[in-house]
């Protein structure tokens, strides 16, 4: 249905490990932004990618590599300039509603409590919030906010707000979860905890997840497969199978698979000039 005929290195790896049907499929997707009076920017260049049903896929890359653009294309918030995006077999030509989305900023509504912020998802969909109240409470408990349902966003910490945003993306039980650098603004400890909690949540629900991050560790620790992207124009460099057993607790960092995957990704970024080796003096271009 979606098998791309272009045999790039990326697609071949996907094809080799593909077992379950693809839920999201990008074929030859290019995204060009045109602004009046400025040079056009090619955010994505001929990207082929499939995400299997129930898979946790992470995209890692430096800022400007088009990874957020890719997420917005899948959500239908932007449309591809050329190529095709399909979700569940249907071409994406408008904002998709059969998904949950989490942005870098939690974007909660200041005038609603944590519980009401979770429920706004169902209210905006024209569903009866009363029917989802118990589920919302359960979700808040699952993300560690059992006692904070009646707090307003300004009474919550950054990590708590993020947890509310995650609960809001899950309340309507959509099959696809899109996360755009969701842990970006959090401190390292909060990040680690919320990462562990997210994995537990995912293991319980087995949704298809597209997770965007600029953290190599985070991508490897969370994902089944990690897509490595390089910037200008945004391109897929490689797709890695992580192969770490789940659940991945705190000691997953000591596993040989973790080291292998992170080193492989680091090497790609070194080769692409995204990272510079330590021997290179600062300031020398």
């Amino acid at each position: 249905m979606t098998a791309p005929s272009v045999a790039t290195a990326a697609t071949r790896i996907v094809a080799a490990t593909d077992a379950s049907p693809p839920y999201v499929a990008l074929t030859g997707v290019t995204k060009v932004y045109r602004r009046a009076g400025r040079e056009e920017t090619r955010a994505l260049d001929r990207v082929d990618l499939t995400i299997r049903e129930g898979e946790f896929l992470a995209i890692v890359g430096p800022s400007g590599c088009g990874k957020s653009t890719l997420l917005r294309l899948v959500a239908g918030l932007h449309l591809a300039s050329t190529g095709e995006v399909r979700v569940d077999g249907r071409v994406v030509d408008r904002p998709q509603t059969n998904l949950g989305i989490v942005f870098q900023s939690p974007v909660l509504l200041d005038w609603r409590t944590a519980l009401a912020n979770v429920l706004v998802q169902v209210e905006l969909r024209g569903l009866d919030p009363a029917a989802y109240r118990d589920r919302a409470r359960r979700l808040l408990t699952q993300v560690g906010l059992a006692d904070f349902g009646d707090r307003y966003p300004h009474e919550l910490s950054g990590g708590m707000r993020k947890r509310v945003a995650i609960a809001r993306a899950l309340i309507h039980d959509a099959p696809l979860l899109l996360m755009d650098e969701p842990f970006g603004a959090l401190d390292a400890l909060t990040r680690e905890q919320i990462r562990l909690d997210l994995e537990a949540l995912w293991l319980a629900t087995r949704k298809t997840v597209l997770f965007i991050t600029h953290s190599i560790d985070e991508a490897v620790l969370l994902a089944d497969r990690v897509v490595v992207m390089s910037p200008r124009p945004g391109r897929i460099e490689r797709i890695l199978d992580v192969g770490l057993p789940r659940p991945r607790g705190l000691d997953a960092r000591r596993a040989p698979e973790f080291t292998r995957a992170t080193e492989a990704i680091t090497e790609i970024f070194l080769a692409r000039g995204v990272l510079h080796g330590a021997a290179r003096p600062i300031g020398q271009e």
Binding site: L77, T97, I101, F103, S105, V107, L109, E123, L124, G126
Partner: peptide, 27 residues
């Protein structure tokens, strides 16, 4: 209206009037 909030709202398929009542007006 915050751009990310409006993007989130678009993924819910909410109508213009619902968006106004639940997001734009309170904001």
């Amino acid at each position: 209206a915050d751009a990310d909030i409006m993007d989130f709202a678009r993924t819910t398929g909410a109508s213009g009037w619902t968006l106004f009542r639940k997001i734009r007006l309170p904001q």
